Amino acid sequence: MPIVTIQQFPRELAQKRELARRITDAFREVYGVSEQSVQVFFHEVDGENWAKAGVMGSEPSNGKDAS
Rank of each mutant, 00 (worst) to 15 (best):
G32P: 09
P10W: 12
R11W: 13
D46K: 06
A53S: 14
Y31K: 10
F9I: 12
M1T: 10
L19E: 06
H43Q: 15
S37C: 07
E44R: 04
P60A: 08
A51V: 03
Q15C: 02
V30D: 01
R17H: 05
L19D: 06
W50G: 07
D46R: 03
V55N: 09
G57A: 11
A51Y: 06
D65C: 00
E18G: 05
P2E: 04
Q36Y: 08
K52Y: 14
G57I: 09
Q8N: 10
Q15E: 12
Y31T: 06
D65N: 13
S34G: 15
F41M: 13
E18H: 11
A20T: 12
E18V: 03
P10A: 14
R21P: 03
G47N: 09
V55C: 12
T5I: 08
E44L: 01
T24R: 05
S34N: 14
E44Y: 02
E35M: 00
R28N: 05
Y31N: 07
K16D: 11
K52T: 08
S58Y: 10
E48Q: 09
F9S: 13
M1G: 11
A66N: 13
W50E: 02
E59W: 02
Q8T: 14
I23C: 03
R21E: 11
Q8L: 15
I3E: 12
Q15V: 06
Q8P: 01
W50K: 00
A66H: 10
S34V: 00
V30R: 04
E12Q: 15
A20H: 02
T24M: 03
G47W: 04
D25G: 01
V33Q: 05
S67V: 14
H43S: 14
S61Y: 00
G47C: 10
E18W: 01
V30C: 05
P60Q: 11
T24S: 12
G54S: 08
G32T: 10
Q39S: 15
F27M: 09
V38C: 06
V33E: 05
K52N: 12
G32F: 07
K16C: 10
